[in-house]
């Protein structure tokens, strides 16, 4: 199984005045294609930092992140933006939808960055929202949608430009357990049916256990298992 996304001896050290905080301490991790991996750990264990690193939002202090065997280190800012646009999609605990835009507009914004225009963009955004079960909520604003629905919009947006990998940062953190199960069911289905690779950060062991292929435990910035 070839690794689509890999972290190699990654360190992230934040300088806080005189003392430095090590958020990631020599983390190495490989995620195979079509794998659903959960990272579990307490808050402050560095799991979100690792996710941001893999998602191209942050740079490691030391070490290297590889995507499809290519190191991200030498990427220019523009190439990094393209990586976030086309190679990985991200969803967050608090959804991070643009509140003034409808579900369709949120998805269409990502498509616009991907270069899709006019009718194609409309069709594709409808299709994406239908895939996550929101075919009838296209013109609703985030405030008019439930938490589960908002996270589905976020998933549709993350997958807008056909990325290989979906990075999910506590996607069920703001959902009740029924909605959480539904949502992870959808993600599981996407891995099985659409060949998506998912790396999910969570602190809920039960959920991770039920849906993920593999669980990676983190503690104090280190992978412990």
């Amino acid at each position: 199984m070839s690794a689509i996304l890999a972290a190699q001896e990654v360190f992230k050290i934040y300088q806080m005045g005189t003392n430095s905080v090590t958020a990631l301490d020599n983390v190495s991790l490989e995620i195979g294609e079509r794998e659903f991996v959960a990272i579990q750990g307490t808050s402050g264990s560095g799991k979100s930092t690792l996710l941001n690193m893999l998602g191209g939002l942050d740079h490691p202090t030391k070490g290297e992140v590889h995507f499809a065997s290519k190191p991200l280190g030498p990427f220019t800012k523009k190439e990094m933006a393209r990586y976030r646009r086309f190679s990985v999609g991200m969803i967050f605990q608090n959804f991070n939808l643009i509140p003034t835009m409808s579900a369709r507009e949120n998805v269409a914004l990502a498509l616009a960055f991907g270069g899709l225009r006019g009718q194609q963009r409309r069709a594709r955004s409808s299709e994406l929202l239908a895939r996550v079960g929101l075919g009838d909520r296209l013109e609703h604003k985030p405030s008019e949608l439930s938490g589960g629905e908002q996270q589905r919009v976020a998933i549709a947006r993350a997958l807008a430009n056909n990325p290989k990998v979906l990075l999910a940062d506590e996607p069920t953190g703001n959902l009740d357990s029924t909605r959480a199960h539904e949502l992870l069911g959808l993600l599981r289905e996407m891995v099985n049916q659409d060949g998506l690779t998912i790396l999910m950060v969570t602190h809920d062991h039960e959920l991770a256990n039920s849906f993920a292929d593999r669980i990676v435990f983190m503690k104090d910035g280190k992978v412990v298992l």
């Binding site: 998602g55 800012k77 933006a81 991070n96």
Partner: peptide, 16 residues
Amino acid sequence: TREIGIMKAIGAEDRE
């Protein structure tokens, strides 16, 4: 700020 962060997260270039 948040909106700009979102746009960057979904792939907006600095130029854009």
